[in-house]
Nucleic acid binder design. Sequence first.
DNA 1: AACGTTGTCAACCGCTGGTTC
DNA 2: TGAACCAGCGGTTGACAACGT
Length: 253
Amino acid sequence: MGRAPCCSKVGLHRGLLRCGKSCRLRWMNYLRPDIKRGNITPDEDDLIVRLHALLGNRWSLIAGRLPGRTDNEIKNYWNTHLSKKLRSQGTDPNTHKKLSQPLLREPKKRRNNNKSNKQQKNKFRTINVAASQVEMTKVHNPKPTRVSSLKSFAMSRNNSFDWSTGCSSQEGEREFAWPNFNVNGVGFLIGDDQDDPDLGNGSDDLECQSHEPTTSSDNGNLEKLYEEYLQLLRTEEVDLVDQMDSFPESLLI
DNA sequence: AACGTTGTCAACCGCTGGTTC
DNA sequence: TGAACCAGCGGTTGACAACGT
C-alpha cells in the first residue's frame, strides 16, 4: 500500500523492508491488538464531529477519546466521509459554521454499501458493527501527562491517550479522577485515580502539580469546565464553534 | 469489455518537542 | 548548553478496488 518505503532498504532485515519508524507506524495504526475493527458507528460519527468542533484537526486528541480508534483512522474517516457529510448538510467542515449555500450533490454511492472487498478479505478486519452499535460509545479522557512547564502542557503534541497503559473497554476502564457524565447517549467514562502514580499526588514536582488536571486542588475548576462542556454540547441552537473556540485551551491548561 | 473517474485507507513525509548524553 | 536521537503528530500521497460511461 501507499508509497515506497520511506528509508533506504539497505541494512534492513531481508524481507521486511521496513525501518523502525515504519514498523512503529504500522503497529500503532494497524497491528495493535486493541484496535477496534469495523465501521465507525453513528455514535462515534457524531462524537467525532463534536470533538472536531471542539479540538479542530487534533486527531490524536480526538482518537484518545474513542477507544480502539487510531488518529489515522479518524483522520481518514473525517477526510473521506465526515467533511463531505457536513458540506452536504450545509456546514463548513473546517469552521463548523453554516454555509450560505449547502452542497446539494451527494457523494456518489457505491452499489455495494459494504466496505471494499480488499478490506473484507483482510483477515484482521472482523466486522462487528451490530454489537458496537448497541453498546454505548465510551469516551475516554486523555491520560494526563507529566509536564515541565505550562507552555509545554498547553502545546504538547503528546497528550493523546496512552494505549500502552492497557486501557480498553474490555480490560476495565483507565482510571481517572474526572467525573462521569453522559451526553446524548455518549458516555464519558472517568473513574477514580487516586492511585495512579502518573498523576500529581503531592510530589515534589510543584510546577507539575499546579497544572495537573486531576489534583484535588483542581477539582472545582474541572467540575466547572465540565459543566460548561455539557451545557455547550446540549445547546443545539447556538453556534457551537463561537462558544467553544477557547474551550480546548481551557481544558489543556 | 474497456477505459476513465472516484473513493478508500495504509503508509510516507516533514516537522516539533522531549529526552539523553 | 547544545547536539543527537527519538517519539509522535498532522498533512499528504498513491496503489488498489469500485463505480460510471
